[in-house]
Design a protein around this nucleic acid. Structure first.
Length: 589
DNA sequence: GCCGTTTTCGGCCCGACTGTTTTCAGTCG
C-alpha cells in the first residue's frame, strides 16, 4: 500500500466518523485527518518506516493510529476501521473525491437512493440526477441537484483537484490574470499567493489577493475576466472562477490597512497557518485574515497589519520566506530569531547543464542555439562561468574512433571559445548516459576530452529499486562523473519517477564528493524539495542547472532555485554559488 | 486521538460562501 492509499484510508475513517456522529467524534476526526496529511507528505514509504522501526515518530500519528497501521500492514485489514465503517455504503468513499461532496452529502445521497456499488456510483448518481431523483431528498433542491450533476461530470472529465500544473505554467497563467486585475483602478495592490507564492513544484488553484477600498468593484471586475468559463462563488470578500482549461482562480479582497494579514493568510500553507494559530492561541491571541484579535480587559481588539512583516513581528516571529511555510520547524526557528539565510537567485554564478546546437551527433536531443548565443545569454545573466554539456554522441551509430574524433573536435572548438571569451569562464562538460548495466555510455578515453561529466538515466526506467540504485551508483562512481542530473527522472504529469534508495544515493554522494543536480526544467524540478531537504540535512551538496536547450530557457534558473529554497538550502549547500576557482577545484578534484 | 515554551489532562484554527431547513449545515481553503 502506498502512502497515498494509506492516507486515503485514514481520511475515509474520518469521513465514517463524521457520518456516524460528528459532534461526538470531532477530535478523532481531526486526528485522523492530521495523520492522513502527515502520511501523505511523508518522504519515505510508510511500509519501510514501519518495518525499519525507525524511532523517528511521525507527527500526528500517535500510539493508537500507529498500532492500527501496523495491523494494516501485517494483516491487510484493520478491525477497528471496519467497525467504524460498518453500516456505511462503500459507495460513499469514491464520492469524497468529487468537489462539493463531503461525507454527509455523499451518505445522504447513497443511502436515500440505495446506491451501494462503489465502482459505478458516479454514473449511477449522474443517472439519478438526470431523472430528477436528487431534488426530492430532504435538504437537497433543484439547484443542488444541478450543482451535483455538474460536479460529477467535471469529475469524470478529470477536472479534479489532484491535477496540478507545473509551477512555470502556473506562473504564466497567473501573469495574465494579474495583468487583468491590475487594469481596475480600484486595485491598489495585486499579489498571486497560495502554493504559487510558496513556489511549490506543482500548483492546483491560482490564488490572488487584492488590496482595495472598493471590494464590490474588484469582485465584479474579476468575474468578468475574459477567460472565465463559470463563476463558482461570488461573495463580498472572496470569489472563485473556473477559467478555460478547467483551472480554478480564487480571489480574496481586503482593505489596504489589513492587507498584511490577508497576504499571510492566503499564502498558507494550511499547515503553517494552523500551527501559527495554535501558537497564537497559547498567547491569548486569535489570528485570521483580518488581523490578530487580542483580549484587552474584557474587550477584544482587532490589530490590523499593512505588511506581512508587521504581522509576524507582532507575534514575536521573524518574517518567514513563503517557500518555508509548511510547518516543518520554521515557526520555532522564527520565534528564536534563528531562521537560516536561504539561497537566492542572485547567488548563482554559473549554469552547468546546457545543450548547445554544436553538432555532436548526440544520443538524444540537441540544443537550438549556438554556444556563442548561449554565452551571450549567460553574460546578460551576470554569470561568472557556464558549462556546455550536450548529450554524448550516439553509441549505436558511431564507432569508438568516430566518437573520439567528434569529442576531440568539440574540445578544440571549446578551447578556442575560451580564448576569445575571457570575460566568462567556460567549462567543457558532457551529459553522459548511465546505461542499464550501470556502465557509462562513454569510455574513459572519450572522457579524456572533457573536464568532467554529468551523468544521468535516459532509458529503461522501470527497473526494481535495488537494481536501479546499483546502476546509478556504478555510473556515478567513475572519477570523471561529478554530477547526477535530474536524479529522479520524473516528468510532471507525464512520467513517474523511477525507484531509488535515496539514503544510499545520498550516502554515496557525500562520501565521494559528488553533487546532486536540482534540475530547473519546468516539468522536471527534481530532485524534489522534500528529498533536497533530506539530502541537505545529511550534508550532500547540490548544483542547480537549467538543462537549457535554447538560450531563453536559461531564465528557468529561478524555478530551480525555488526548489532549493523549499528544501531550506543556504548558499553553502549549492556548489554553483562558489567563485569559479573554488568551483573548478571541486569539479576536477 | 494527539500533544506539551501554561498542561501527562484538557484542550484542539478561523472564516467565507451556498443552498435551503429563514438560522444553519455542509464544504472549502
Amino acid at each position: 500500500m502506498t502512502n497515498q492509499e494509506v492516507a486515503r484510508l485514514l481520511r475515509n475513517v474520518a469521513a465514517a466518523y463524521s457520518i456516524k456522529d460528528e459532534k461526538k467524534h470531532i477530535f478523532q476526526i481531526i486526528a485522523y485527518q492530521k495523520a492522513a496529511d502527515a502520511i501523505y507528505n511523508l518522504p519515505h514509504e510508510l511500509k519501510d518506516v514501519l518495518r525499519e522501526r525507525t524511532q523517528e515518530k511521525i507527527p500526528g500519528v500517535g500510539p493508537s493510529i500507529l498500532s492500527h497501521l501496523e495491523e494494516l500492514f501485517a494483516k491487510g485489514r484493520v478491525k477497528h476501521f471496519e467497525e467504524i465503517m460498518k453500516g456505511i455504503p462503500p459507495s460513499v468513499f469514491p464520492l469524497l473525491k468529487v468537489t462539493t461532496l463531503g461525507p454527509k452529502k455523499a451518505y445522504k445521497l447513497t443511502s436515500h437512493l440505495k446506491l451501494n456499488n462503489p465502482d459505478t456510483i458516479v454514473d449511477d448518481l449522474i443517472i439519478a440526477a438526470q431523472k430528477n431523483k436528487i431534488a426530492g431528498i430532504p435538504t437537497f433542491g433543484e439547484k443542488s441537484q444541478a450543482d451535483i450533476l455538474r460536479a460529477l461530470e467535471e469529475y469524470k472529465l478529470g477536472k479534479i483537484k489532484a491535477n496540478r500544473m507545473p509551477l512555470p505554467y502556473a506562473f504564466e497563467l497567473a501573469r495574465k490574470t494579474e495583468e487583468y486585475l491590475r487594469k481596475s483602478k480600484f486595485a491598489e495592490q495585486v499579489f498571486p499567493l497560495g502554493s504559487l507564492r510558496r513556489m511549490m513544484a506543482t500548483v492546483g488553484d491560482i490564488d490572488f489577493a487584492v488590496a482595495t477600498k472598493q471590494p464590490k468593484e474588484i469582485i465584479n471586475h474579476f468575474i468578468n475576466y475574459p477567460g472565465t468559463e463559470r463563476v463558482i462563488e461570488k461573495g463580498e470578500a472572496s470569489s472563485s472562477i473556473l477559467v478555460s482549461g478547467g483551472r480554478q482562480v480564487d480571489l480574496m479582497v481586503q482593505d489596504p490597512d489589513s492587507f498584511g494579514s490577508l497576504l499571510q493568510h492566503f499564502t498558507g500553507s494550511k499547515y503553517h497557518n494552523v500551527a501559527l494559530r495554535e501558537f497564537a492561541l497559547k498567547k491569548g491571541m486569535s489570528l485570521s485574515e483580518y488581523g490578530v484579535k487580542v483580549r484587552i480587559g474584557k474587550k477584544q481588539e482587532l490589530k490590523k497589519f499593512k505588511t506581512e512583516k508587521d504581522f509576524y513581528q507582532f507575534l514575536g516571529l521573524d518574517w518567514i520566506i513563503p517557500e518555508m511555510r509548511e510547518n516543518k520547524g520554521e515557526i520555532e526557528l522564527a520565534i528564536k530569531h534563528n531562521l537560516p539565510k536561504i539561497v537566492e537567485l542572485k547567488d548563482i554564478r554559473g549554469d552547468l547543464h546546457i545543450h548547445s546546437s554544436y553538432p555532436i551527433e548526440p544520443s538524444h536531443d540537441l540544443g537550438k542555439d549556438t554556444m556563442q548565443q548561449m554565452l551571450g545569454k549567460s553574460r546578460s545573466l551576470g554569470y561568472d562561468y557556464i558549462a556546455f554539456s550536450e548529450h554524448n554522441p550516439g553509441i549505436t551509430n558511431h564507432s569508438k574512433n568516430q566518437i573520439y574524433s567528434i569529442l576531440a573536435k568539440r574540445s578544440e572548438y571549446i578551447e578556442q571559445l575560451k580564448e576569445s571569451n575571457k570575460g566568462i569562464r567556460i567549462i567543457n562538460l558532457l551529459e553522459v548516459d548511465i546505461l542499464p548495466s550501470g556502465e557509462l555510455a562513454m569510455d574513459d578515453k572519450s572522457l579524456d576530452y572533457v573536464e568532467a561529466a554529468i551523468v544521468s538515466v535516459h532509458s529503461v526506467f522501470s527497473t526494481p529499486r535495488q537494481k536501479m540504485t546499483k546502476r546509478v551508483l556504478r555510473g556515478l562512481s567513475n572519477p570523471k562523473a561529478k554530477i547526477l542530473a535530474h536524479p529522479s527522472g520524473r516528468l510532471i504529469n507525464q512520467r513517474e519517477e523511477y525507484e531509488l534508495d535515496w539514503d544510499e544515493i545520498f550516502d554515496f554522494a557525500l562520501k565521494h564528493n559528488k553533487a546532486i543536480e536540482i534540475n530547473a526544467w519546468p516539468t522536471r524540478l527534481d530532485l524534489t524539495d522534500t528529498l533536497v531537504d533530506q539530502a541537505r540535512k545529511m550534508g550532500v551538496k547540490f548544483v542547480i542547472d537549467t538543462d537549457s536547450h535554447a538560450s531563453y530557457q536559461m531564465d528557468n534558473m529561478f524555478y530551480g532555485v525555488s526548489v532549493a529554497r523549499r528544501g531550506w538550502c543556504t548558499k553553502k549547500d549549492i556548489l554553483n554559488t562558489l567563485p569559479y576557482e573554488q568551483f573548478y577545484k571541486w569539479l576536477t578534484g
